[in-house]
């Protein structure tokens, strides 16, 4: 149940996009239609779910003082994390291409974008800062990815509809997307009062 709490917390209460503004660039650039947003969202869940446990292993086994090298190597954290993310994205791209060419053609262009998606690196850094355990880091990765997925689908759906509204010309497109994101952030804040531990304790 502890893991479920972390998942819910990462997906809704501490949503990576709407509470921390991570992954904003691709969130704004790829949210023009729901279908593309859906593809990118799925890819982000996948990559977050994979890189998070790998980065946990790296920071525990290689970089910490109790690790293989027996010294504090945390200054290498950024370089190793980003290398893991870049190579994982590359690997995922190759596997998907081999296993499911159909999925590859629909995801293909978005996969390389994910390397520079701040939500991925941010997730790993949060994981270290909050001292999650191995299984917790998986739950956090999947939850964070799911939250990102929800947010990008929501903004894409709103942006598809708002095209028919009478927005002031200078505000059209980007300006409106910013304001909408702000409003969505406030809406998600109403979830902050939820205490996942209390929810599961009642059952």
């Amino acid at each position: 149940m502890e893991l479920f709490n972390i998942f819910i917390k990462a997906a809704f209460i501490e949503n990576l996009v709407l509470a921390y503004f991570l992954g904003m660039c691709s969130y704004l650039a790829v949210s023009k239609t729901v279908t593309t947003a859906f593809g990118l969202g799925l890819a982000v869940i996948f990559v977050l779910g994979i890189t998070m446990p790998i980065n946990w292993l790296i920071s525990e086994l290689l970089l910490s003082e109790n690790g293989i090298f027996g010294m504090d190597l945390t200054f290498l954290r950024f370089i190793l994390f980003i290398a893991v993310i870049a190579s994982m994205v590359q690997l995922v791209e190759m596997i998907v291409e081999k296993v499911s060419p159909a999925l590859y053609t629909s995801l293909g262009i978005f996969l390389p974008l994910i390397t520079v998606n701040c939500a991925i690196l941010g997730g790993s850094l949060f994981m270290v800062a909050r001292e999650y355990s191995f299984t917790e880091s998986i739950a956090f990765g999947l939850g964070g990815g799911f939250g990102w997925f929800l947010a990008i689908i929501a903004i894409a759906a709103i942006r598809e509809k708002i095209r028919y509204s009478n927005v002031p010309p200078a505000l059209r497109g980007l300006g409106m997307a910013f304001i909408l994101t702000g409003l969505m952030g406030i809406a998600f804040m109403s979830l902050m009062g939820i205490d996942p531990a209390a929810l599961t304790a009642g059952k």
């Binding site: 503004f21 200078a170 505000l171 300006g175 409106m176 910013f178 702000g182």
Partner: peptide, 27 residues
């Protein structure tokens, strides 16, 4: 709140594009 930053940037974009209509994107 973090959301305020989004509003402020949205408005900054609005102001800038009102002065430079060429920058407006239609999507």
């Amino acid at each position: 709140l973090p959301a305020a930053a989004m509003f402020i940037i949205g408005v900054l974009i609005w102001i800038q594009r009102s002065y430079r209509p060429t920058l407006v994107d239609v999507s």
